[in-house]
Computed example of a mutant assay.
Amino acid sequence: TDPNLQNIPIRTALGRKIRNTFIAEKGNILVAADYSQIELRILAHVTRDEHLIAAFAAGEDIHRATAARVLGKPAADVDADERAMAKMVNFGIAYGMGDFGLATRAGISRDAAKSFIAGYFERYPGIRRYIDTIKEEARTNGSVTTQLGRRRPIPELRAGNPALRAAGERAAINHPIQGTAADVIKIAMIRLAPRLAEAGLKARLVLQVHDELLLEVPNGEVDRLVPILVETMEGALALDVPLTVEVKSGPRWDEMKPWSARA
């Protein structure tokens, strides 16, 4: 806290300035490992949507593949705006984003947004089924759970206020996805500590920010550490699609570059 390290914006000049003040101790380097699109991968798993699963299994650019499927065109013909709109829907769908939200964010008409979302659900029927099913289960049980069984009560679903009920429905859709992502990184953290000790490494976990782990690592340990870190994070929970991790390193929190093993 003061500042809240979980909430420093990375895309603003002030956020980068704050991050730049965090420097590895002499003889050490910072290593960050970030789950790639973990919530979308969990969405694919919980919805069992065959098209989303196939796209992840093939290692496709998921947002470009989504735009191509919804718009009925080859992926190579998808332009930057179309990919950006698909990205907004992919990430927004788990938060109950509707046509008004998409129209506002994408700067398009509400009719165009409504058409895209309708096409999205038509092309990804597993996602539509999941949303309908999870809302019904939440109303019946008064709660939803993550893949690991962590339960969240949602009393808002029985509220008389329509806005509160709608908020409850969004929470019902989101918790099994975002909550599972939170469970996954906690599992990775719990498993990582003993693995570092067993390997005789002095590297230490210093921070978890959403889907990312940040470690301070002696310079000579990095090449030994990274495979252990990646294996631990990618193996935290078995899903129908692979979990993948991207690693960066650098002397300061704001000066990190993609890691590559030295020959």
Rank of each mutant, 00 (worst) to 15 (best):
P218T: 03
E212F: 09
P218W: 03
I173K: 06
A188K: 10
A203R: 01
A182P: 08
G168Q: 13
L196R: 10
G200R: 01
I228K: 05
V217L: 09
A171T: 14
A199D: 07
Q178D: 11
L214T: 12
L229E: 07
A197M: 12
H210V: 02
G179M: 06
V209F: 03
E216G: 09
I190A: 13
G179H: 04
I190G: 03
A166K: 08
M189F: 05
A166M: 09
A203F: 05
H175W: 14
L196Y: 12
I173P: 09
A182S: 10
T180S: 15
I177N: 03
A181Y: 01
A171V: 01
E169A: 07
A203M: 00
E221L: 09
A197S: 12
H175M: 02
I187T: 11
R170M: 09
E231P: 00
G179I: 05
A203N: 00
E198Y: 04
A181H: 00
L229V: 03
Q178N: 13
A193D: 14
G168W: 08
P218Q: 08
R191K: 15
L229R: 00
P176W: 12
R165K: 12
I185M: 02
G220P: 07
E212N: 09
L207Q: 05
I173N: 08
V206C: 08
I185H: 06
A193H: 14
D223R: 04
N174D: 15
I177W: 01
P227T: 02
D223A: 13
R195Y: 00
V209H: 03
N219Q: 14
E216P: 01
R224E: 04
A199C: 03
V230M: 07
V226R: 14
P227M: 04
D211S: 12
A172W: 02
A171W: 00
I187Q: 10
D211E: 12
E216Y: 01
E198T: 05
V222P: 00
G168C: 10
G200W: 11
P227D: 07
V184G: 00
H175G: 01
Q208I: 00
A171I: 02
D183I: 14
L164T: 15
P176F: 03
N174F: 13
A167E: 10
A181V: 02
E212G: 12
V184T: 07
I190C: 08
L164N: 00
R195K: 15
A199E: 06
P218M: 11
L229C: 05
R204V: 08
V209Y: 08
V206H: 04
R204H: 10
L201I: 09
N174C: 14
R170H: 08
D183P: 08
Q208E: 05
L229G: 05
G220Y: 11
A171C: 06
A171K: 14
R204Q: 13
L229F: 05
E221K: 02
L215F: 04
I187N: 12
E198K: 15
E221S: 06
G220A: 13
G220W: 11
L192D: 06
G179W: 04
L207D: 06
G179C: 07
G168N: 05
I228M: 07
K202G: 13
E216K: 06
G220K: 09
Q208G: 00
R204A: 12
P218I: 05
R224C: 06
A167M: 14
A172V: 13
I185F: 10
I185K: 06
V222N: 00
I187M: 11
V209D: 08
A199N: 09
V222T: 15
L214F: 10
H175S: 01
N219V: 10
V206G: 09
K202R: 15
D183K: 12
K202E: 14
